[in-house]
């Protein structure tokens, strides 16, 4: 389980973020006092830091700079300022991603998992002996190979991330839109049935189950 450290001074947001992350299957720790957040981060042994740029005491930028001197833990900066300067500064100080308040929680979760993946912290991806090759856009077990479109691949990876669990349509939609695929509800349904057909070709009939009014489960 990945551990995420939250550096956020608004107590309510901090608690809600904790709940959000814990519900999403991460373990979360948060800074309660802001005397030496850097030391707290380092001693927490976390896999990712979610940092508000306007925390009291040392501000986010200096903290980030100090943190970068001693470790490479990925950092996502959060701010409420719709201001280009903040973004430039934090990216140049080595933040891995940047998100503006009020963020969409689904997108925040997506960005967290994307950053974790990018930093090589995600597990090997395979499904029933088939390796998921995102770069080539295919599933492949050495003998057989099946090509997925970009949309199908995004959906499949999202389902695979929560293998055996319900994935809501909303979550799939968020993942698609965050990858610049602006499809509507009908198109999502079409993509899911195409993906089903392709999985059947591999002999995985009924791999994607529909749970009425809840979402889909990949088995």
């Amino acid at each position: 389980m990945y551990k995420i450290f939250i550096a956020e001074d608004d107590e309510l947001i901090r608690d809600e973020l904790k709940t959000l992350l814990e519900n999403a299957g991460y373990s979360a720790a948060a800074a309660d006092d802001f005397d030496d957040v850097c030391a707290q981060i380092l001693s927490s042994g976390c896999d990712l830091v979610l940092m508000d740029i306007n925390i009291p005491g040392e501000n986010g930028e200096t903290l980030l700079r100090r943190l970068r001197k001693s470790c490479k833990t990925p950092v996502i900066m959060v701010t409420s300022r719709a201001d280009e300067a903040d973004e430039l500064i934090s990216m140049s100080f080595g933040a891995d991603d940047y998100i503006t308040k009020p963020y969409n929680p689904a997108i925040l979760l997506l960005r967290i998992s994307a950053v974790l993946k990018r930093c090589g912290k995600a597990q090997q991806r395979s499904y029933r002996g088939f390796e998921v090759n995102s770069a080539k856009g295919c599933l492949d077990n050495g003998e057989r190979e099946i090509i997925l479109t970009k949309n199908e691949m995004i959906i499949f990876r999202e389902l695979l991330d929560s293998l055996g669990e319900i994935v809501t349509r909303d979550r799939l939609m968020t993942a698609l839109w965050d990858n610049d695929e602006y499809i509507n509800d009908n198109a999502l349904t079409v993509n899911i049935s195409r993906l089903r057909a392709k999985l059947s070709e591999l002999g995985f009939d009924g791999a994607i189950e529909t749970r009425k009014k809840q979402g889909y489960v990949l088995k």
């Binding site: 309510l12 973020l17 959000l20 300022r81 308040k101």
Partner: peptide
């Protein structure tokens, strides 16, 4: 106005997180 917008986005963020955590 800049400061106020910054301030008002905090409760908005909390609300959105609460909505999400309660299952939308």
């Amino acid at each position: 106005v800049e400061l106020w917008v910054h301030e008002i986005k905090l409760p908005l963020s909390s609300l959105e997180l609460m909505l999400y955590n309660s299952g939308y």
